[in-house]
Write a protein that binds this DNA or RNA. Structure first.
Lengths: 192, 192
DNA sequence: CCTACCGATCGGTAGG
DNA sequence: CCTACCGATCGGTAGG
């Protein structure tokens, strides 16, 4: 007589939560909204996730795992730092807009998470994402490819440049990423 | 016997609202919090501002006016686009951290404003801020200073690079802004 | 996984 | 008719 467990529901909750979180931030949506969109009761959400904090942390961890895979691919496929970063940007632009926006919004919304969740996120954010990119810069500097700037700073600047485009519907993403990468690598000044 | 009007209160409300808005976003603070911090009643806030939406719009407009003044100074003091942008970045880093953060957070939080307030903000955001910077790029491109990229795109990339640093306590802001500007103008690649 | 609820707090407004 | 508020409470919704 056990109710049939739907393994799909947990994934559906994560998907709807990700979309609503991106659209409105942590305090900009309610657990009721998710339940209503999925046609389930609110306590059904609490069966799969301890609380709102836990649900959003799961959304963020899933996104970080995906970005981590993207970076793995870049490191395997390319050898130079420039090629790796170029591939990374293009593969990020190929993600669903909601996935792109997540990484941009996360940093701003973690203040609404519990201290423990914040700590967990920060750890994984470094391990799965920025730390990996910093390593690419480190390698590129050692290979004489980049100027000798602090790789941590270079990473922040690099991600900052990309961040405005992490929430676009974006028809001409290809052109935008080309220009952005060109300015980052070669500068905006006209060459003499 | 008329109660002495405190013209300071309205400014105090704006100041506290700006800080709480920066810290937690539109839905991350309450009108009660503002009232309690200032030791006044909540209706006292509603005497000065129609509602929460109106209060935050006023916070954003004040910030845009300040940025507009900053840009005026840059255009008056310098002639080349590179010098103007350099001065702008340095003057932004000289602002109180809360003022810096406002411009970064605004774009993310306007979804929580009423359609009318959003429209008002977007208009002023373009007129007082990004439109002015775009004009600087336009002039720089026409003067042959910058490569011939879309000045609107250049503005977004430029502001994006700066955005990660718009919320730092920031001891070595000087060094950070130098490196960031250097990469933007001359690129991250090692010159041969 | 549901119905049925709770303590609290939200933005906003009543009369005085 | 104005200002600068107060104590109390409105209808709704938050997480649980």
């Amino acid at each position: 007589m056990a109710v049939v467990d739907s393994p799909a529901l947990k994934e559906q909750i994560l998907s709807v939560a990700a979309r609503l979180f991106v659209a409105g931030g942590y305090n900009g949506f309610s657990m009721r909204q998710i339940a209503e969109e999925l046609g389930v009761s609110k306590p059904a959400l609490y069966y799969h996730f301890k609380d709102k904090d836990d649900l959003i942390l799961a959304v963020l961890i899933a996104a970080l795992e995906e970005y981590n895979q993207l970076i793995n691919t870049c490191i395997v496929c390319d050898s130079s730092a420039r090629q790796r970063l170029t591939r990374l940007v293009k593969s990020i632009f190929d993600l669903a807009p909601e996935k792109r926006a997540l990484i941009r919004i996360a940093g701003q919304e973690i203040v609404h998470l519990s201290p423990l969740s914040r700590q967990t996120f920060n750890l994984l954010y470094h391990e799965k994402f920025i730390g990996r990119i910093t390593q690419i810069f480190q390698d590129g500097i050692q290979a004489g490819e980049f100027m000798a700037v602090d790789p941590v700073l270079a990473t922040r600047i690099f991600l900052g440049m990309m961040s405005p485009f992490f929430h676009l519907p974006d028809g001409n993403a290809r052109h935008i990423s080309d220009v952005t990468l060109s300015i980052f690598f070669e500068g905006a000044l006209r060459h003499d």
